[in-house]
Computed example of a mutant assay.
Amino acid sequence: MTDLILASASPRRRELMKQAGLECRIIPAVGEEKAEADDPALLVEELSFQKAREVFEKVTGRQMIAPTRLPAYNGEAGDNITDGFSYFGSGPVVIGADTVVSYNHKVMGKPVDKDNAREMIDSIQGGEHEVFTGVTFIWPDEGCDKYVTFHELTRVMVYPMSSSMIEDYISGEEPYDKAGAYGIQGSFAINIKGINGDYNNVVGLPVSRLYRSLDIYGLI
């Protein structure tokens, strides 16, 4: 059985892995990630790679060796990127992920305080925003290390919210550990008008595409 390691402390990502039948160990990345990208798609890819790399090097006790980037599952039926590829290694497969909300070209991570949470919710209420999650998984193979990095985009529409509704929401604990200051799977669900894309991507992990990407490389 492949040794899957999730480089995240998020209980939501852990639950999504469990729902997909992907048994994994939890070893959160603890380093401070720094990314240069301004584009949210490139930003989350870069941050997910940093998280996965940190934990991969921690558990293997070495730096990555000649890393080779390979393509992710692209959503096409019968995708044969690897055609017959099987993984027989004994090393770990480390999965990192990072999620941000983007509205009007402004990237939102987790709010730093109540005022920041209020600003975020006020900006997205009554309109449409985008949620980007970047995913990277790394594994050792034949004297080198291989990795896959991709991002998933979901558009989210939010009903208009009054000031009192916003105040009620940010007075609870829910907003403060989530990108964009809300959780679609929590009490904020009453404000969601609709989505275009993968719901689980908004929760924090596009697990269906991750599953298929792991599968085509023989990692599950």
Rank of each mutant, 00 (worst) to 15 (best):
G91T: 07
S208V: 12
S187G: 11
I26P: 11
P71E: 03
V148F: 09
E36Q: 14
I192H: 04
K58R: 15
H151I: 05
K193G: 14
A37M: 10
G91L: 06
N201R: 04
G194P: 11
P175E: 08
G91K: 04
R14K: 14
T154D: 07
L219I: 10
R14Y: 08
G186P: 03
A35D: 13
I195A: 12
L4I: 09
K193F: 04
E167T: 11
N74Y: 11
Y169P: 05
F137S: 02
G194Q: 10
D38T: 11
S86Y: 10
I184F: 02
N200G: 00
E152H: 09
V94S: 06
R13T: 01
P160I: 00
G21A: 04
A179I: 03
N80F: 06
P140Q: 03
E130V: 10
L22D: 00
D141A: 10
I5E: 09
A77I: 10
P111A: 02
D39H: 15
G127S: 14
R53T: 06
R155V: 09
G78V: 02
E54A: 12
I170R: 06
A179V: 03
E54L: 13
S208W: 09
T99D: 00
M1S: 12
R53I: 03
P140Y: 03
I166Q: 08
S10G: 11
E173Y: 06
S162I: 09
C144A: 14
G78A: 02
L16I: 01
S86D: 12
Y169S: 05
P111T: 02
E32D: 13
E119V: 07
E46G: 15
G143K: 00
A66F: 09
S90I: 06
R69I: 10
V100Q: 06
I5S: 08
I220N: 05
D215P: 00
G143L: 01
